[in-house]
Nucleic acid binder design. Structure first.
Length: 243
DNA sequence: AAACCACCCAACCGCCTGCGT
DNA sequence: CACGCAGGCGGTTGGGTGGTT
């Protein structure tokens, strides 16, 4: 089928919003809400398309928007959620009150991605040929890696060191604690579901075997999956049931 | 002071999905 | 079932801004 243009651009304004336009949009939404974005600009007297209005409201004018730079905790949360969810910015934004998907996306591309890239770069980059739907840096097992003081003991420690740039683990043997896995999309959506009765569809079939370097025995692997499961919002009972 | 450069972020674009008909 | 519309999402862009030479 032939798709109609997202909006009729004839005579509609584009580009940065003026203060006046903002005021019109705010007062209209305060009075009438925003049940129909397409009709809204016409009714409000704005020469914008509905999409543009929606974006402006969602990303900038909404009263509950938190302005200003991201805190360390927020950055840490973004990194952790990105590990779990990938580029699902709206899902990540849902876990950060007052932050928009657009804002998080920007922060990721301008700050966090670079830091992670730096962090993940190592002279002998054996992972460059690996492909994955979801890249996950596993939390090191305290049992399997306790022999090395150089290996951080928790994911938050890892993430903090990435954020503050103090991490220098490329000097160490990252292969012992890093792995890349492929996970069924439904795993995350199920795990994040508020419905307790839903059990995330974990399957070891989804593990990309050649890349699966984490854990030297089954217990370590289970610990890894358990941790991811809980991080993704799954319950302990759900994990037990699944396995 | 001017030119250049790099970075940031608001906004746009196109695709996807859900829903009503 | 097919179609069309509206909303939502992620990727990308380009103007603005601040830093450097």
């Amino acid at each position: 089928m032939v798709r109609a243009p997202c909006c009729d651009k004839m005579g509609l304004k584009k580009g940065p919003w003026t203060h006046e336009e903002d005021q019109i949009l705010i007062s209209y939404i305060q009075k009438h809400g925003h049940e129909n974005w397409r009709a809204l600009p016409k009714q409000a007297g704005l020469l914008r398309c509905g999409k543009s209005c929606r974006l402006r409201w969602i990303n900038y004018l909404r009263p509950d928007i938190k302005r200003g730079s991201f805190s360390l905790e927020e950055e840490e949360t973004i990194i952790q959620l990105h590990e779990m969810l990938g580029n699902r910015w709206s899902a990540i934004a849902a876990k950060l009150p007052g932050r928009t998907d657009n804002e998080i996306k920007n922060v990721w591309h301008t700050h966090l991605k670079k830091r992670l890239k730096q962090y993940q770069t190592k002279p002998d980059n054996t992972k460059k040929n690996l492909k994955s739907k979801t890249k996950i840096k596993s939390e090191p097992s305290t049992t399997s890696h306790s022999e090395s003081d150089e290996v951080p003991s928790s994911s938050s420690e890892v993430v903090s060191s990435i954020i503050d740039g103090s991490d220098h683990r490329e000097d160490n043997n990252m292969d012992t604690w890093e792995c890349l896995v492929e996970i069924d999309e439904s795993f995350w959506s199920d795990a994040l579901s508020s419905d307790e009765s839903q059990v995330p569809s974990l399957s070891t079939d989804n593990i990309m075997e050649p890349n699966y370097t984490f854990g030297e025995n089954l217990d370590d692997s289970m610990e890894f999956w358990y941790d991811l499961f809980i991080k993704a919002g799954g319950s302990e009972q759900g994990f037990i049931t699944q396995f």
